[in-house]
């Protein structure tokens, strides 16, 4: 009798405990979603603010309490922004630098990574270690000397001046050219490292077989290794293009003239004043135009960016 009774009480306890657990679990889930949604709203709010502000007219933007949805949507700010910042030229300059430097950089990266992954020669490991060691050094340390180097490449400008040769001076002075924006950054140790790791995963037997068949290194590289490492190459391409898009300090330092200015520098130069009574809707329109290509890349190629990024820790 008592046993049965005890058992019933026991069962009821279990049910109660289970019900309690379920309530706790639901409460925790609700709390998690609430927290995540609030954080997500905070994270995307700046983008939302940029978009709504870019379509407001100045009078509406100046209302004491800002509207969260524009009363009247006007697109004129975009036209004004495009002309004020001369965005057309900036776009084509940046695209040119981005495309040329990406292509050249890919070629060098592939060849170098191939050598370090497949060929044997004396001093290979020491050299690769030395390469990796340079990754620790902050880029600003290089900039000081590189600035001197490009102002007087291999002393050619000084020589040209002594000899009175304008051609030599032009060869030595890289300032305000596209060359100066492309050449110093063609070799990226990080990309070489990334691709080499990828190449190493391809079995060596394939290479030996190709050698036996008399396939040349270049042909093997082109027919076997590049197709297999394509995802990494796409990641590198995207990161490199984004790098050109976002680079600010070097372009500002060495190519700050109208004809060679890149987009980030151009944006900052066109809207120097950020505080007080400035036409913020036009600024926001310009920022939206500059950000648009990045968003497109994000939407369509997110997978590749995440893949490259999680291993680098390098922005842009």
């Amino acid at each position: 009798m008592t046993d049965q009774k005890n058992f019933a009480v026991f069962e009821a306890d279990i049910q109660k405990a289970q019900a309690r657990q379920r309530v706790v679990r639901i409460a925790v889930q609700v709390f998690l979603y609430l927290f995540l949604i609030i954080m997500a709203l905070i994270v995307i709010f700046p983008f939302y603010f940029m978009l709504i502000s870019s379509v407001k007219d100045l009078a509406e933007y100046r209302l004491p309490v800002q509207t969260l949805w524009p009363n009247k949507i006007i697109l004129h700010n975009y036209i004004e922004a495009f002309h004020t910042a001369n965005l057309g030229t900036l776009f084509s300059n940046t695209l040119y630098v981005g495309i040329v430097s990406t292509i050249l950089s890919l070629i060098i990266t592939v060849i170098t990574a191939f050598v370090f992954a497949r060929l044997e020669f004396k001093g290979k490991n020491a050299m690769f270690a030395a390469l990796l060691a340079t990754m620790m050094i902050p880029g600003e340390l290089f900039t000081i000397t590189n600035y001197q180097t490009i102002s007087n490449f291999l002393g050619l400008r000084t020589l040209g001046r002594e000899l009175g040769s304008k051609d030599l001076i032009a060869l030595g002075d890289w300032k305000n050219t596209f060359t100066v924006l492309i050449v110093p950054f063609l070799v990226s140790v990080f990309y070489i490292y990334l691709l080499r790791q990828n190449f190493l995963q391809i079995p060596n037997e394939l290479y030996l077989a190709a050698k036996v068949d008399g396939t040349s290194d270049i042909k093997y590289l082109w027919k076997v290794m590049i197709p297999l490492a394509l995802p990494t190459l796409i990641s590198i391409t995207i990161l490199k293009m984004m790098g050109a898009w976002n680079s600010y300090m070097w372009p500002r330092l060495v190519a700050n003239d109208e004809a060679h200015r890149l987009i980030t520098n151009g944006l900052r130069t066109a809207f120097t004043s950020v505080e007080g009574d400035v036409n913020i809707p036009v600024q926001m329109a310009a920022v939206a135009i500059v950000s648009a290509p990045l968003f497109l890349v994000f939407v369509f190629l997110r997978k590749y960016i995440m893949k490259g990024v999680s291993r680098s820790g390098i922005k842009g």
Binding site: F47, F49, M50, R268, V274, Q283, M284, V287, V290
Partner: peptide, 11 residues
């Protein structure tokens, strides 16, 4: 992540 730190700084 995929934004321009100067541009969004202006925002």
């Amino acid at each position: 992540y995929v934004t321009n730190s100067i541009a969004i700084g202006m925002v």
